[in-house]
Simulated assay, not measured.
Amino acid sequence: MEWRDEGIVLAARPHGETSVILELFTRQHGRHLGVVHGGVSRRKAPMLQPGNQLDAVWRARLEGHLGSWSVELMRSRAAGVLSDPLRLAALSATCALCAFVLPEREALAEFQIRTEDLCDAIVSGEGWLNDYVFWEAALLEVAGFRLDLGTCGATGTTEDLVYVSPRSGRAVSRAGAGEWASRLLALPEMLTGAPPSMARVVAALDLTGFFLSEKVAASLGNRPLPAARARLVDALRGEA
């Protein structure tokens, strides 16, 4: 078995004395793992930092085997954000959430390209806050839980939407909420078209984080969300 693809480094963990298990989010083969022999070396280790773009060849005797990678660096994103703790946190959170949520070996070409675009925006520093918020919403949909914020789940109206149902992820209008308003989540302004501000970004991520934790993580064995995401939200909250 052998194929070639390109993708984003999500994680690399030690394997034996000199190798690492590399996790890539590839364009055509989804989230895929393999061994990089000599991955701890001075030449290879810098290539295997989360967020970097690699050209990779995967080989294995049988398709179900872990296999091995041969990799070449295409773009070093990690190096571009080392001097900016906030953007470094965003790049780390993006990679950690992909590794946490995405199914292994399932092609998600459209979402993969969206993730590459987000990583590039984080490195450039242009528009990444807005992109990150809506990327998390898209990640929820990939995981099987879609937010429906266009119409009220109770009345069908598109007017005065101010709440979100914590059970269904559907928007609820003020009138539709009625006596249940205290049990509903606030609908962040940013998710209904308001321009981003730090406070609005945090409010939006509080909502997506709720569903990532209560719906997605719960379906994955109640594992906690990656610490990298919490660090990003805490850093953003400090800036709000």
Rank of each mutant, 00 (worst) to 15 (best):
6 E>H: 13
59 R>I: 01
238 G>I: 02
124 S>I: 00
15 H>K: 15
25 F>Y: 12
135 W>C: 11
68 S>H: 09
197 S>M: 10
64 G>Q: 05
238 G>M: 10
17 E>A: 11
141 E>L: 01
8 I>S: 06
83 S>C: 07
72 E>N: 13
3 W>A: 06
7 G>M: 10
141 E>T: 08
215 K>L: 01
193 G>D: 08
72 E>I: 01
17 E>D: 15
183 R>F: 12
169 G>K: 00
8 I>R: 14
120 D>M: 07
2 E>F: 06
48 L>F: 06
188 P>W: 03
8 I>K: 08
175 A>Q: 15
222 N>Y: 08
61 R>T: 12
224 P>D: 06
124 S>K: 10
217 A>Q: 02
225 L>P: 02
176 G>K: 04
227 A>T: 07
79 A>E: 13
7 G>N: 11
128 W>Q: 13
24 L>K: 02
216 V>S: 02
131 D>K: 14
64 G>A: 11
120 D>H: 11
221 G>Q: 02
182 S>T: 13
89 A>G: 08
204 A>P: 05
2 E>R: 14
186 A>D: 13
62 L>M: 09
234 D>Q: 15
37 H>D: 09
165 S>V: 04
41 S>A: 10
43 R>G: 13
207 L>G: 10
108 L>W: 02
240 A>I: 10
164 V>W: 02
13 R>F: 04
173 S>R: 04
133 V>D: 00
192 T>G: 12
73 L>W: 12
212 L>N: 02
203 A>R: 09
43 R>N: 12
102 L>E: 12
200 R>I: 01
58 W>T: 01
104 E>P: 04
149 L>P: 04
138 A>R: 07
127 G>I: 04
233 V>M: 12
137 A>I: 09
84 D>R: 08
27 R>Y: 13
1 M>A: 05
231 R>E: 07
115 T>Y: 05
17 E>G: 14
145 F>I: 08
37 H>L: 14
80 G>F: 04
160 D>T: 02
39 G>W: 02
38 G>N: 08
51 G>Q: 07
189 E>G: 13
132 Y>L: 15
125 G>E: 05
121 A>Y: 00
129 L>R: 15
